[in-house]
Design a binder for these strands. Structure first.
Lengths: 347, 347
DNA sequence: CAAGGCTAGGAAAACCTTTGCTCGCACGAA
DNA sequence: TTCGTGCGAGCAAAGGTTTTCCTAGCCTTG
């Protein structure tokens, strides 16, 4: 019955009301369904003539295989979940993009899940991903601080990107914050700066903590102390950068460089210095962090800054996930992605 | 054979090597597969006791239905594609989020496709989405300029968000650029400003064009001309805002307000004015556009600006898509989302 | 007491593709 | 001529769920 309708519509070659199935292709090519499948997938052996006949039939019908059927039969979805815990912020976006890029190349599609930092939403998305039988999950967030691992995922491989898991047995890909700070400090030292101030974000942020620690260590290694004797913790804003500049200039009028925890702070510092008639970089050099174009390029002068290469973090996370999917289990451990120093005019 | 393994493992109640199927649940509850399905879905009629027995069995086994099987049988995927043409930019991100939010509420998952503005990549993603039998597609981009419609999607409903389709028979949801400009101009007029300058982006951007047009129209309606006699087109940068400020002050020293095409330009204007000792908003008021937090809040003073409510655009696009999916065909036409004026200190 | 209706639950088809196995045929060698 | 080999192609099962149709049993009503 449905066959006769099928035959009728295809014989008059009209836009099919229903999408062409493999069976339609097979019929048109005069072969069995199994043979058609093998012809299209390139597996199995058959006369070249048969194969081309099937290919032509598929083409003529605009056949596109039903992935649901393929997935059901294969037991996998060729899909990974991308969970972001904070909307899609300034940090997670490049990570997502890098991951999407690497995965797309591998015939894998990306299911986007935004939890908005809400545990309920996270659990909801998680069960959705499980029902959909995703091949794996990439988890990313807004902060470099470690986050509790996803619970109840069974044996689905997971890779944490940017925000590592608190469980060291999980697979995480993170930025080398200490290394990034190292690049900045070495650069300033190489420029001959010796009175270096460090102004950064909240002390309870791992990013601020890690970068400050390495900064102080490296200065100590060079036989120096920070210009004001300590690191200045505040928030990640321009306003804090401006306020901190006042404090630093008061405590250490001979300061000759600022290394800032992000580009917003750095921009605040640059503004404050300019308004006091202090020349950047002649009198005081500035290095920022994040290489956030809208900030770093618009600052006067444009900022020398540290780029965490977030896209690369996403790409590597995706590659590790792909490997884990093939292997069955993720290789545990934290992998660190080096940062790059982008030199512009401020230092 | 596999049955006996199944029975053995479940009888000793050990973590199953394979995920529980509906058949396992049915066995455990002592009912048939069909009944188990009905019990779980809430359809069909049965004794409450039977239903709870099935529910308990499902729970005990940690059963989660195989969506591939469900989708295959239902012929749909409960998935929509989100195509963005420009990475995930500052504009498309809120749109994506809004859409994801609205869709997630409706049990629909989101497949993320980033074309990076590349037609080949777009075509590739498109065929992937078709194979996966997505229920619909939302297309978004970085600019408000219309874009050519997606070709070859068959009967899959599509809604264009933020960047409308050039084909008016498609369904598009866009920001009311003219209305946004209206809010800004009315606000300035209400403040008693009469010498208003308009500084905006490239003349070949629809956003710049639309906003400038409405600005000039409204000023004319009020019996006014723009302070410099014309709109100033440039680029979307702070540097342009600073340069334009010089030009405007030269041509119209009595200017008492700037309406800027985006917050970056507005911030450039604010900086330039402050550096000349001109007080904002006492001497000159400023209104920006976009309500980009990092810019609008960091400017001195914080910017009064127009918020396009991008999340709402995404949400409405998602709702229209949902309606189109249910109805079979999208209701064609362009829908316009009103903007809001965010009043801060600059005007 | 009998007949009809209602309900709980089961059987099986359908959704579409993949893949291992089998069958048949043709050709070559003994 | 017969047997073996190999290749081309088809058959059928499997993958897991939903849904329609049916059956069997019970209750109600005449």
């Amino acid at each position: 019955m449905s066959d006769s309708i099928q035959a009728a519509t295809s014989s008059i070659d009209v836009a099919l009301p229903t999408r062409a199935r493999l069976a339609d292709v097979a019929t048109r090519a005069g072969v069995s369904v199994g043979t058609a499948s093998k012809a299209l997938s390139g597996s199995g052996r058959m006369r070249p003539e048969t194969r081309t006949r099937v290919l032509q039939a598929a083409d003529a019908l605009g056949f596109s295989p039903n992935r649901h059927a393929q997935n059901l039969q294969a037991g996998r979805s060729w899909t990974v979940g991308l969970m972001t815990t904070d909307g899609i912020g300034r940090f997670s976006t490049p990570v997502l993009l890098g991951a999407e890029d690497a995965l797309g190349a591998g015939k894998i599609s990306v299911l986007l899940c935004d939890t908005r930092g809400d545990a309920i939403r996270e659990q909801h998305h998680l069960s959705t991903l499980i029902e959909r039988r995703v091949d794996g999950i990439i988890v990313t967030g807004r902060r470099t601080d470690a986050r509790p691992p996803l619970a109840g995922v069974g044996s689905i491989p997971i890779v944490y990107a940017f925000s590592p898991s608190t469980d060291p047995r999980d697979a995480s890909v993170v930025s080398d914050d200490a290394g990034g700070a190292g690049l900045a400090v070495e650069h300033l030292l190489g420029l001959g700066r010796v009175r270096i101030a460090h102004v950064t974000g909240p002390a309870h942020h791992a990013a601020a903590q890690d970068r400050a620690q390495r900064t102080l260590d490296l200065l100590a290694d060079a036989g120096l102390a920070p210009a004001t004797g300590r690191a200045h913790f505040g928030d990640w804003s321009e306003a804090w950068g401006r306020r901190a500049t006042d404090a630093v200039l008061r405590a250490a009028p001979d300061v000759d460089a600022f290394f800032c925890g992000n580009d917003q702070i750095a921009r605040g510092v640059a503004d404050a210095l300019r308004e006091r008639g202090i020349s950047v970089p002649d009198d005081v050099a500035i290095v920022g962090y994040d290489n956030w174009d809208a900030m770093a390029l618009a600052a006067r002068p444009p900022l020398t800054t540290v780029d965490m290469d977030l896209g690369e973090i996403g790409r590597i996370a995706a590659l590790r996930l792909l490997a884990a999917i093939d292997a069955g289990e993720p290789r545990p451990g934290v992998e660190t992605v080096p940062s790059r120093l982008i030199v512009r005019e401020s230092a």
